Simulated assay, not measured.
Amino acid sequence: MSKLVATCSRIREPNRRMAEETQRFLDSKTKPRRSLGRLEDLACQISAIRGTSEPEPPRKAIVVMGADHGVAEEGVSAYPQEVTGQMLLNFARGGAAINVLARHAGAQVVVVDMGVKVPLPAVPEIRVHRIGPGTRNFTKGPAMTREEVVAAVEVGTRIAEELVRDGVSLLGIGDMGIGNTTAASALVAVFTGAPAEEVAGRGTGIDDVAFKRKVDVIRRGIAVNYPDPQDGLDALAKVGGFEIAGLAGVILGGAASGVPIVVDGFICGAAALAATRIASLTAGYLISSHRSVEVGHQLVLQALGTKPLLDLDLRLGEGTGAALAMNLVEASLYILRDMATFTAAGVSDSGA
Rank of each mutant, 00 (worst) to 15 (best):
P133A: 07
T135W: 07
R136I: 05
N137A: 07
N137I: 05
F138Y: 15
K140P: 05
K140G: 13
K140Q: 15
A143S: 15
M144S: 03
R146K: 15
R146L: 14
V149M: 02
V149D: 00
A151L: 12
V153T: 09
V153F: 10
E154P: 03
E154R: 04
G156R: 06
G156Q: 10
G156L: 10
G156N: 10
G156M: 09
R158S: 15
A160P: 12
E161C: 11
E161P: 09
E161M: 14
V164W: 13
D166C: 12
D166Y: 09
L170P: 01
L170A: 04
L171R: 09
L171N: 10
L171T: 09
G172V: 11
I173M: 13
I173E: 03
I173Q: 05
D175N: 10
M176K: 06
G177L: 10
T181M: 09
T181S: 14
T181V: 09
A183H: 00
A183I: 00
A183W: 00
S185V: 02
S185G: 12
A186E: 08
A189P: 01
V190G: 03
F191L: 14
F191R: 00
T192Q: 04
G193D: 06
G193I: 03
A194L: 10
P195R: 11
A196Q: 05
A196H: 02
R202A: 10
G203L: 03
G203A: 05
G203Y: 01
T204V: 04
I206T: 01
D207H: 05
A210E: 04
K212E: 13
D216Y: 01
